[in-house]
Design a protein around this nucleic acid. Sequence first.
DNA 1: AGCACGCCGACT
DNA 2: GTCGGCGTGCTC
Length: 841
Amino acid sequence: MLLKDPNQVPESRTIKYVDVIIPVPIPKRYRYAIPKELEPYVHIGFRVVVQFGERRLLTAIVAEVLENPPEHYQAKYILDVLDFEPTVNATQLQLWKWIADYYMCTVGEVMNIAIPSGLKLTSTSKVQLNPEFNYFEHEMELNPHEDKLLNHLRGVNAVPYDQVSEILGIKSVYQVIKSLIKRRAIILFEEVKEKYKPKKIKKIRLRDAYLESEQAMEELFASLSKKTKQEEILLKYLSELPVLSRPELNREGLEKTEITHGGFSTSSLNTLLKNQIFEEFEVVQSRLDEMEESVTVEAYDFTLNDIQAGALDDILEIFKERDVCLLHGITGSGKTEVYIELVKKVLANGSQVLLMVPEIVLTAQMVVRLRKVFGESVGIYHSKFSDNERVEVWKGVAEGKFPFVVGVRSSLFLPFDNLGLVIVDEEHESSYKQYDPAPRYHARDMAVVLAKLHHAKVLLGSATPSVESYYLAKTQKYGLVELKQRYGNAQLPAIHFADIRKERKRKTMKSEFSSLLLDGIKESLNLNEQVILFQNRRGYAPFLTCEECAWTPKCNQCSVSLTYHMYRNELRCHYCGYREPAPKHCIACGSSKVKTVGVGTEKIEEELKVLLPETRIQRMDLDTTKRKYSYQKIISDFENQQIDILIGTQMVSKGLDFDHVSLVGVFDVDRMIHFPDFRSHERTFQLITQVSGRAGRREKLGKVIIQTANPNQLILQHVFNHDYWSFFKREVWERKQYLYPPFTRIVKLSVKSESRELTDHAAEQLAVYLRGRIGQKRVLGPEFPVIDKIRNQYLKDLIVKLERGKVDLVKAKTLIAEQIERLRQQKGFRKVYIVVDVDPA
DNA sequence: AGCACGCCGACT
DNA sequence: GTCGGCGTGCTC
């Protein structure tokens, strides 16, 4: 690619300009000039290459084309245009802007996560010897570094800029390079390359000449009669592809690997190619099909039952008047089928559909199902996809190949141009909220915004709707449809509580297992049924402690204890990833009485292996599912009853349907209930209800055993009765009392720095500013969070509560931003970083 | 964010 | 004196 000098003076009178979005967290607008010859090719949404600062090249998106030059500076020129079609359409740009404003970040930050990095360019500076430079004439003027670099460059083509410091063995090389450029000894240039490469497969086919007549083919065979290897290859080709009877198949050709992997000689094939009997060609192949190849699922035939059909009608009716509808359907009520019918209808109208699902629900199970119904028109957007795969989905959506997309959070940003419907499944899931990096957006809420931009409808689905969404439905902002019966009239599972306080007193506990739960497990196993155990904490134990001196290993960089992981016998920090071997003796006093405290999935697994030695047990948590397909492997093993008991974290609670699970056991609910967060009750209700939903299918009644120190807690009673409504009423009452969402909007500000004192001072100062401008009562804190140091950054939080309907949100956010700016202007607080999280999860 | 510049201590 | 560390300011 030829790059032009950005500072070159324009030859012509009228120049156009562009304002661009650059992938950088700077809130300013940047305006560039368009060179005359590129002018016809520059349009809104196109990618252009711009120089930003002295050394950086960036991929920018054209946000606006303008007639007038900037007033106070000389604009640089755009260096190149990368597209013939817009990469980003106008609606996407509107969404980006909306998100940047609402979540208080820059459009550049939105761009950064919105487009796959394969659509961005990498710019790597390279240094090269100037061929016109005569080394020997100037040898004496050079300092040792300059001399060393030039000598190195004489042997090679070009060297990446970052390698220069290695070559010279010094850190700051810029002076050396600058001086050499001045002497015209070297050239510094930027090499720009498109990162996305389509996957190509090599194919071969017969030259057409041989298919034109039987005679040609006979002559070919005759010429090969003594060349056995080559003849074999020809025969193989003809047997795989009957081109003699159907010559049109020759266009398709055969994959080269089919020949070479079939034990045929590569060199013979090469000879055939060289002698112009075969020809080689390449086709672009999609990477997207690999995921499903291993999975088989029976045909997915269904008809909606009366209740589902009724729900569908209700939804359609609601959509006549409202844009958003909440589908509250208890677990197992068959929401997915309702979605599918709805999607069919919208697609038939010629509109696009986006179905959003939380990360872990999007498994091969679901994908294969949807493929069965919608075939090639479904695009899948999963977070475990490589960047190249993402680019393929992106392009597929843009080209209209995928009118229907199933995807995670970030699929919101795909280049839809005609959305008719967005479905957000498991709408309550907190994984729809992105925390790091900015934009800290909520995909469910942004789905509503996206749909509005497209004049499309939104269906939110959940068995346990978020309090916010259900409140909006109950106050008539959203439509509401409820599915209160399980599909096929199955019953909701029966909930039992194992009172571990009583069992401990009676000494009927076997380590972490109550007798009620253990007997339940045995009973299920005896009936050849499966069991799911839920413990929402990975590792073996959350910490170690010395019985003699109470010493506990802590993370150096974070204010947490280290979690003990048995399978590697190491201690790990779940916040920064630090690992070290587990100590045999107390580091403080040398005692060997180091004990684990608390319970994680690993410990449950280990104890169970001792209690039930013959049983096939599998653990499913972050540690066992890191590889791309390991999650699916576990799921399919469990489905095929290769596993009797599945122990896991939240992962086991989501969206999966198993036919033979009769019992679900839940550990440690009390910790969940008493977690210090205004959403802890909501989370507990959702999590237990979701995981309970895995128990029992069709005619079989499932059973759930929850271990708790106090079965009388109100929230557990709501769970016991499967009573969402009572849970909701109580929760709404509390939130109204204490001014939490949906009655307020929360903006959380986290102050971060390398020193506790600095963080503390900055947070206190910020609180003063905010109270002065926003109002005393609206600002809570600052408070040190429970974990007040992560990766050597000290944290202190402030909460701003803005009453719904009373406070002008836009104004309030502007005020908040101004106070942050005001703080950052102070010399002493330059090293303080403030994270703004709007609507924190 | 990244990158350059400038000012400072600490080494040949 | 130069090297590299860190604080500061700018990027069209």
